[in-house]
Write a protein that binds this DNA or RNA. Structure first.
Length: 424
RNA sequence: GGAGAGGUGGCCGAGUGGCUUAAGGCGCACGCUUGGAAAGCGUGUUUAUGAGAAAUCGUAACAGGGGUUCGAAUCCCUUUCUCUCCGCCA
């Protein structure tokens, strides 16, 4: 979330930013924030004075009791009674203001970077890069769900039986290809300087709040009620939360982590929640990269991440494009996002395989992730993350684009991981 | 699952109602000392928040939340985490 101080000092900038997102009612909410904040601060000043007074009196009482002047002490005691009433009501007021203020702040999305184009939907996203030839497939080329069945490498029906729709079973060379991709992505990320980590797959409430899934998107996560834990929707959640309530030194930057995890998403209410094949699943595998950066370096880092992901798709020789998301399509917490899409020839459509974002201080503020700057003051760090890469759609793209009459070829860079060159 | 013991500053650790933001030690920073270093000596060393141009001052925080009290690290309730033993177990 945005900090109150930022909103107070940059009201116009905030309003303009929210306009790029088509955020309605912005002026009203921002005014309320400023108003509640002023009330909050005034109330705190009053409360602090009252507490200060009452601390003084308590000390006096202590001294009086020690010296045996019990009567005098009792007189002072009476005074503190009134103060107690006062601090009680002021405290209640203060908590109320704080609660109202954070309710408001939770509703305000991040301010988009200058580069973000305005727009309402994915149609207004800006294509900033495109590479790779669309392969010409033989007659009778199939979409991946048909290929999966033909070569018996992914069994959707079996997943239905065990769990339900959106939980496929990978088999034989399909399972091996999946594992190969994970190993390949992790190796490439490590080479690029990311530290490999294996986080827990369940998170507590505090972590969900830290990265913004809670309090109001709990419907999107699977919840284990008996222990009040949530299955992670992405590795971003546990890995970014490593740094919750942390005060870094400048010399700690940059922090670069990569993690492979399964991801669990309920996809409640999302359009086409049960589309065919691998395009949208409740459980899928993803390799994520997460960075914590100095604010001055975060956009450099974003570019570096984009180039890194670009390199992966180039090596896999998949046709892809990079989109800069428009205000209307930008995630709630992001300031700038680049989506990577692979073209699937057999489906004749673009499939999102990665999303790389800079959140600036938006997550760090909730996480209380700070560093000591050169002036010795603590300052919020910037957080970034991206998929590097999400497995199912990469897999779909590979199966569909690499199919031949003899079988599905394996990209050269993956052969040393799979141990085979073709699925037939 | 059963029984017990604990959670204090960057770390170790003292502290069972007021003079404790918290002894002592370690670490770290600066200064003195030294040819240089070490040792020694001295000084300093939490975070958040409110007021202020700033210096600074106030408030809050001893796992989290609530309570008792004029006053809580200290007493009570509660949640949570860690450790030990037993049980079960990949």
């Amino acid at each position: 979330m945005l900090t109150v101080a930022f909103i107070r000092e940059n009201k116009d900038l905030v309003l303009n930013g929210l306009a790029v997102r088509n955020f309605t009612d912005a002026e009203n909410i921002i005014n309320q924030v400023i108003e509640k904040d002023a009330s909050r601060r005034a109330t705190q000043a009053k409360l602090d004075n009252a507490l200060s007074e009452s601390n003084k009196l308590s000390k006096e009482i202590g001294i009086l009791f020690k010296s045996g002047e019990v009567q005098k002490a009792n007189i002072v005691k009476e005074k503190t009674g009134q103060l107690k009433e006062l601090t009680k009501t002021l405290n209640e007021k203060l908590s109320a203001y704080e609660a109202e203020l954070s309710d408001l702040l939770y509703q305000i999305p991040n301010i988009p970077n200058k580069l973000v184009p305005s727009g309402n939907s994915e149609n207004d996203n800006e294509t900033v890069f495109r590479e790779g030839d669309i392969p010409k497939l033989h007659d009778g080329a199939l979409p991946h769900w048909e290929l999966a069945k033909k070569y018996d490498i992914i069994d959707f029906e079996l997943g239905n039986k065990i769990t339900g729709a959106g939980f496929p079973v990978y088999k034989g060379k399909g399972a091996k290809l999946q594992r190969a991709l994970i190993a390949y992505f992790l190796d490439k990320n490590s080479e690029a300087g990311y530290t490999e980590v294996q986080p827990p797959l369940l998170i507590n409430e505090a972590s969900g709040i830290g990265t913004g899934q809670l309090p109001d998107k709990e419907g999107q996560m699977y919840h284990v009620g008996i222990d009040n834990l949530y299955l992670i929707p992405t590795a971003e959640v546990p890995v970014t939360n490593f740094y919750r309530d942390v005060l870094l030194k400048e010399s700690d930057f940059p922090i670069c982590n990569t993690a492979y995890t399964p991801c669990f998403r309920r996809e409640a209410g999302s359009y086409g929640a049960h589309v065919r094949g691998l395009n949208r699943l409740h459980q899928f595998d993803k390799v994520e990269i997460v960075r914590i950066e100095h604010p001055d370096k975060s956009y450099e880092a974003l570019e570096d991440m984009v180039n890194h992901v670009k390199g992966l798709l180039q090596e896999l020789k998949l046709p892809f494009r990079i989109l800069r998301l428009c205000g209307g399509d930008l995630g709630f917490t992001s300031a700038l996002t680049y989506d990577f899409e692979v073209f699937s020839t057999a489906q004749d459509r673009w499939l999102e395989v990665s999303s790389v974002s800079n959140f600036e201080t938006f997550q760090a503020n909730r996480l209380k992730l700070r560093f000591k700057n050169k002036e010795g003051k603590s300052q919020l760090a910037h957080t970034l993350n991206g998929s590097s890469l999400a497995l199912p759609r990469v897999l779909a793209g590979l199966l569909e684009n690499y199919q031949t009459v003899d079988g599905i070829k394996i990209p050269e860079v993956l052969v040393k991981y799979t141990g085979f060159e073709i699925i037939n």
